[in-house]
Each structure stands twice: as C-alpha cells, then as structure tokens.
C-alpha cells in the first residue's frame, strides 16, 4: 500500500534578502498587427520582470494581446520595438530553456502518451536514448500518469492530456515555463484539482524550472497560483497594474486576504 505523503507545499526559497535577480525581462515591448495594409497596435510599451522561483501571471480583458506577449517571450514572434531578455541575452528565436504548455494540449493523436513526451527528445543529439527514456518515464510519473505510457491521447480525459503536456515540458528540463490559459479547456472540477497540484509540481527544488509565466483570465486561479500579476489594459495592451501577492501556500480561497487580492486585480480590470 502506498504510504500517504502529507507534504505542505514547499516554501519559496529566499537565500539572501536582497532583490532577486531577474531571469526574464521584457523591456518596452511594442507589437503591431498588420491587416489589410493597416497597422493596428496590439501591445504598447510593456515591461516587467520575472525572478527566480517566481510564478508570474499575465492577465487582461480579451484581445489585450496577452497571448501575443507570451509568444514574444517564447521567441515565436518578434516585437516591433523593445526586447525580451533571458538572463541578459535577447530572445530572438525559440530556445531550449523556454518551454510551453498549450490551452488545447497540442498532443499528437497518432502517438502514445510516452511517445508524445519523448517527441522533443527525438530531435536531440546530446542525450542518449536510454537517458531520454528515463527522463520521460520519470516525467510521466511526476504528473501521476505512471502506467499510462501506452495510451493514446484520444482515450485520455482533458485533465490527463494536459498532464501529458506538462510532462512533455518537464522532460526537457527548461528554466522558464510558459503556460497559455492551461486550465481553460478543462471542466471545473478537473481544473480545480489540477491547479492544486500545479504549483508544487512546477516550482520545487527537484525541477529545473526557475520561473513560470501564465496567461489567464481567471482571477481566482491567478490569486491561487501567482506571486506576481501583470495586468494589461484593453487593446492596445499597456501595463496598467502590477500586483505582488504575498500569501502563504497552500492558499485559502475563503480567506479575507485572498478576496482582497482578487478585488485589487478586478479594480485594475475595470
């Protein structure tokens, strides 16, 4: 019988009380969208930082460009002006240290769960096959999907599919994890449950992940999970607020301080 583990969520490490060095910075990001020969500004002068062990949320009304911002950080698109820096070096293209989890899971339907997690590894030359296999099995186990290696995504529930997505990202051992509305496609109960696991899954001493950036429009989930919240205005998106959340984990959704934070964020959104 499996012994119960009664862990409290790991505390955020603060080695020295000085200002934490940013791992990721966005500096005066501007983005335009071209449609029918006209340029529409999508993001205007967006700046923020993410530091070691920080869970940062980016939110705003729909159309404010938060997903585009995430894609700029990922290196998928380039801003018109401004720059994103990873440890002081500008992000010009996608890189191994930055991984992503998608709203619609984006798994390969013709591959098993294990093969999906292995997928990024198959392109790499610097790692042996047995080592890759070991990492992938480990990742699947971490997300609670041990024994599901040979199941196809079509047979998995939404929550399980997202876990495979998480395992896939964990296996490549990234430093920065980007999440694009990761709980949006799940039903309420499953999303609820996954959220509780996500923080301890991602930010703990045994993973390589140093910062998480999550785009979301669910204020409750944001307060439950994040250390810092960046709030964007409606299009074109500008930073209208930055809230640091200093609540101990696990966070009590019923507490007054929790609601206060929610209210603060809502006030920026209206």
């Amino acid at each position: 019988m499996i012994a119960e583990e009664n862990q409290a969520a790991p505390q955020r490490t603060t080695e020295n009380q000085s200002v934490p060095r940013p791992i990721l910075t966005a500096e005066h990001i501007c983005l335009n969208y071209k449609r029918d020969k006209e340029f529409m500004p999508v993001l205007v002068d967006v700046s923020f930082t993410a530091s070691n062990d920080q869970f940062v949320a980016i939110t705003g009304p729909s159309g404010c460009g938060k997903s585009s911002l995430l894609r700029i950080i990922a290196g998928l698109i380039q801003p018109i002006s401004g720059v994103c820096k990873y440890h002081d070096s500008p992000i010009k293209d996608t890189r191994r240290e930055i991984a992503m989890i998608f709203q619609n899971f984006v798994l390969l339907p013709w591959r098993t769960a294990f093969e999906n997690v292995m997928f990024p590894m198959t392109s790499r030359r610097d790692i042996s096959e047995s080592e890759a296999k070991h990492k992938c099995m480990g990742a699947l186990s971490e997300v609670g999907l041990k024994n599901f290696e040979n199941v196809y995504p079509g047979e998995l529930s939404g929550g399980m599919k997202q876990r495979v997505g998480i395992a896939r990202a964990l296996a490549v051992e990234p430093e920065i994890l980007l999440m694009d509305e990761p709980f949006n496609s799940l039903d309420n109960l499953t999303a609820d449950h996954l959220r509780k696991e996500v923080y301890s899954l991602l930010i703990n001493p045994s993973t390589s992940i140093k910062a998480v950036l999550m785009v979301s429009h669910n204020v409750e989930e944001i307060v439950e999970l994040s250390d810092k919240v960046i709030i964007l205005s409606p299009r074109p998106g500008r930073v209208v607020g930055e809230v640091e959340i200093d609540l101990p984990r696990p966070r009590d959704k019923k507490s007054d301080s929790f609601s206060n934070y929610e209210d603060r964020i809502y006030s920026f959104l209206s």
């Binding site: 529930s157 939404g158 929550g159 399980m160 799940l186 039903d187 309420n188 109960l189 499953t190 999303a191 609820d192 449950h193 996954l194 509780k196 959704k253 019923k254």
Partner: peptide
C-alpha cells in the same frame, strides 16, 4: 465520471 472530477469534488467538499 472521471478521476479528476471526483478528486475535485472531494477538494471542494473539504473546503
């Protein structure tokens, strides 16, 4: 019914 839903329900009931 799926595991995630039952787990979620138990969580909510506890809270």
């Amino acid at each position: 019914v799926r595991t995630g839903q039952v787990m979620g329900l138990v969580d909510v009931a506890a809270e």
